[in-house]
Simulated scan of single mutants.
Amino acid sequence: MSDKVTIYDVAKVAGVSPSTVSRTFAAPGRVSAETARKVQDAADAIGYHADPITSGRRHVNGKGLIAVIVPDLANPFFAAICRSVQDECSSRGFGMVVSESREVVARERIIFDEVLPYVRGVLLVSPRMPDVMIRKCAQLCPTVVVNRNVRGVPNVVIDISDAVKQAVRYFALMGYHRLTYIDGPSTSWVGGVKWRTISDECNARNISLKRSHPCAPTVDGGNVFVDEYLLNPTGAVIAYNDLMALGFVAGMRKRGYECPERFSVIGFDNDKLAALSNPSLTTIHMPAAALGSDAAAALLSRISGGDVPGTAVTVPARLVMRHSVGKAA
């Protein structure tokens, strides 16, 4: 980046004060998403990136630091990925920093630029940014995308096809002819993959399928959907993740509907809570540990100048059968 480009230039293009630009990059949580997006667009347009305080900061811990950017640290799936990445980094002499975008696209990019001066590479975990922005990030430093396929950028994804087929087949064997998919964030790439895979298998088995509006990928998100579901119940439900599935079960129970006597649910992820819930949750195991270790290995290889596959590295999902699916009423 040319040292002639400053925050004052960004402020002029964005139509905000220099202090707002500084606050956007230093403390993104203190500005609105709209302001953050306006500042980031202006910075991209004129080629501004925050300068490192010292060039040596990239190597403060052993061989250096990598950054892991996730949508939500409260989600057990992302926490498991981070733990696996940390284990892989520690074994190779690297340190790790973690930050969350809280599902805000503009903040995801701001965080990337914020950590860029201090790290040797970045793992973008389930990023919500558009592909073109991710490719732009990958041009700035070694980058690997996790749980999303972006053409031209090394990525590690989960192959859910066989597990989803087993889940839909299981519902069919239990006598269900209608199914609801509780969708996650509209910006989630893997959410689109889940929907298309479920839809294809339902079409193959002549099962009627409906899709919810985008819901928050949380317990509350599943709970909030209950009233909409009860307007046209299908009996069988697949949720975007386990948290939503558990929230849905809790919401249905409050309204007098027990699982699996009155309805059946399958989740995604296989969080620890899935096995401890009542009833224990049938779910599609998404191998977070393998995903994290493979992604970290790919990034560290890229940092070291090794070969990294240009196409997606895949790890398989599997169906875990427990007690949240019963026979159709």
Rank of each mutant, 00 (worst) to 15 (best):
V10N: 04
V10E: 03
V13G: 05
P18I: 05
S19K: 07
T20Y: 01
R23S: 11
R23I: 12
A26K: 05
A27N: 12
A33P: 02
E34H: 04
E34G: 04
T35N: 01
D41N: 09
A42W: 02
D44T: 03
G47K: 00
G47H: 00
Y48S: 05
V60N: 00
N61Y: 00
L65K: 06
D72N: 05
P76W: 10
F77H: 13
A79M: 12
A80S: 15
I81A: 09
R83T: 15
S91H: 06
S91G: 08
R92Q: 15
R92P: 11
V104M: 03
R107N: 11
I111V: 10
F112Q: 08
V115Q: 13
L116V: 02
P117I: 14
V119P: 02
R120L: 14
R120F: 04
R128M: 10
M129Q: 12
P130S: 15
V132K: 08
I134T: 08
I134R: 02
R135Y: 15
V144Y: 06
V146R: 02
V150E: 14
V150M: 10
N155V: 14
V156E: 04
I160N: 10
D162Q: 03
A163W: 03
V164C: 06
A167P: 04
V168S: 00
A172E: 01
L173E: 05
L173M: 00
L173S: 02
M174E: 02
H177N: 05
T180S: 15
T180Y: 07
Y181I: 11
Y181L: 13
P185E: 15
S186T: 14
T187E: 12
T187D: 14
R196G: 06
C202R: 00
N203R: 02
I207V: 12
L209R: 06
L209K: 06
S212G: 13
H213P: 05
A216H: 12
A216V: 11
A216R: 14
G222W: 07
N223K: 08
F225W: 13
F225I: 13
E228S: 15
Y229I: 06
N232S: 09
P233W: 03
T234R: 10
T234Y: 08
G235W: 05
A239L: 09
D242R: 01
L243P: 09
F248E: 11
F248Y: 07
V249I: 15
G251W: 09
K254D: 14
G256I: 07
P260K: 01
F263W: 09
L276N: 10
S277T: 06
S280A: 15
L281Q: 10
T282M: 06
T282N: 04
G292F: 07
S293Y: 09
D294H: 14
A295R: 02
A295S: 14
L300N: 13
V308M: 06
G310P: 14
T311E: 14
A317V: 01
L319A: 09
V320M: 15
M321R: 11
A329F: 00
